[in-house]
Write a protein that binds this DNA or RNA. Structure first.
Lengths: 240, 240
DNA sequence: TTCATACTTCGATCGTAACCGAAGCATCGA
DNA sequence: TCGATGCTTCGGTTACGATCGAAGTATGAA
């Protein structure tokens, strides 16, 4: 009965509120310093330091020294994926935190989920890709069709290059409030990078929300039109 | 920064060793009484009772009264899936518990993982299904082919009936020691039930290991032959 | 050098939750 | 009705770990 992986250990790591807040912040995808993480955790630097040591020892975080700064980030994709999973699960059980801040509408609209686009726009993008036949749903998973590959290549995504990596091209990621999926995987990441590179959108400094320029928004909505029946849905989407 | 699902809450629930042991035991798929769970948790009945209340309040467990017994089980598929995920992750970080008991070889060979077959035989079965073209790998997911549907129907699986449920037909589940996948989803469950019904195998009383009869083993191995190059691999497989 | 910034380590406090003994409640069988 | 079994609730103890002040280490800047 005592065999098997020790889920209690990682449960305990995630189970502390301060650590959970830090991990959630790092889902934003960028590395943060100990000082920044102390702030998001609502604790002093000393306390944060011990937490960060534990998270690193537990294999959840990786650190990179740079001058007198020490940047922490999620150790790898697996950690992001795990946290996504738990968030999705927690949402279905109604374990929500209830401090609707002023930034919430922006977060609902478009936000970063580890490394890909989430929120209303994220859900819309995947819906549109499926509706247009670029991505097909196969059982539990998602699959890029030939038509989709041609289309994405035409907007500047190096699909061939993405295929050569070990990471899955398409993954679906559950949007916790809407309970609908958006696109994760290396393709999801590449698409978001593409939007950044084109200047359609940019990150915000202290939040996971993504700001679209008016021009970028216009282009994005044109590129991923909503199906006819979907108008005025998707307002409450928000993820992770 | 405070929006989103509260991962700390469920992390804390899983993070207590006694609770984690109980949950792991319930991954065996059958409902257990509070007394039995107290024993696997290594705690008294009183303590177990409070743990079980918390797990139920947190949406992880469901209880069913039956006479003066109170049976606890995982609340639904989602919980099993979550625990599988965490176990898979924990295994990749080397968070293993180290009490190799006498039952371990049996567990490595074949065991139940929530409701489907895991371990050496579980991995072998999926490998064989893929090699024979019954199941294809699509990106991250698995897909039953037409040929596979015909083949499984012929051995007594009601594939059409399975398709009509909301649960995904094929899911892959990471085998933590081998780091290879075996088959989960409603099809994985149906296959294991099929083996039980045919009398090829049965559960053991106090463990998650599955015992094959010699006849059942012969049939199983004939039904799911190993690919030529795979001989003598798969000895160390064990899951969840 | 010297000072400032970024972070860690040490030491002590404190709160929470895990824990168990004992008592209480519910169901069953006789 | 009575005792036995299965489980919960109560109360008090204990232990662990989260927390922070203070001191220590490392890097950079002046």
């Amino acid at each position: 009965m005592k065999e098997g992986p020790d889920i209690a250990q990682i449960g305990a790591l995630i189970g502390d509120p301060a650590r959970a807040n830090m991990l959630t912040a790092l889902m934003g995808g960028r590395a943060l310093t100990a000082t920044e993480l102390a702030e998001v955790g609502g604790i002093t630097l000393q306390t944060a330091s011990t937490h960060l040591s534990k998270l690193e020892a537990g294999g959840l975080l990786a650190q990179r020294k740079q001058g007198r700064h020490r940047y922490f980030a999620l150790a790898d994709d697996g950690v992001g994926k795990l946290l996504e999973n738990i968030m999705g699960f927690a949402a279905t059980r109604g374990h929500l935190r209830h401090r609707p801040g002023p930034k919430e509408p922006a977060l609902r609209k478009a936000r970063i989920c580890y490394d890909h686009l989430a929120g209303d726009y994220g859900v819309r993008m995947l819906d549109s890709l499926i509706a247009s036949g670029a991505i097909s749903e196969v059982g539990d998973g998602l699959n890029l069709t030939e038509r989709g590959e041609a289309r994405l290549t035409s907007i500047g995504i190096d699909v061939t290059g993405l295929r050569s990596t070990r990471r899955p091209l398409c993954r679906s990621c559950l949007d916790w409030s809407e309970r609908r999926a958006h696109l994760a995987g290396s393709l999801g990441k590449a698409l978001l990078s593409n939007f950044f590179n084109k200047g359609w959108a940019r990150r915000t400094e202290n939040s996971r929300s993504i700001l679209f320029t008016s021009e970028g928004e216009r282009r994005f909505l044109a590129l991923f039109p909503m199906e006819a029946g979907e108008m005025d849905k998707g307002q409450e989407s928000a993820d992770v």
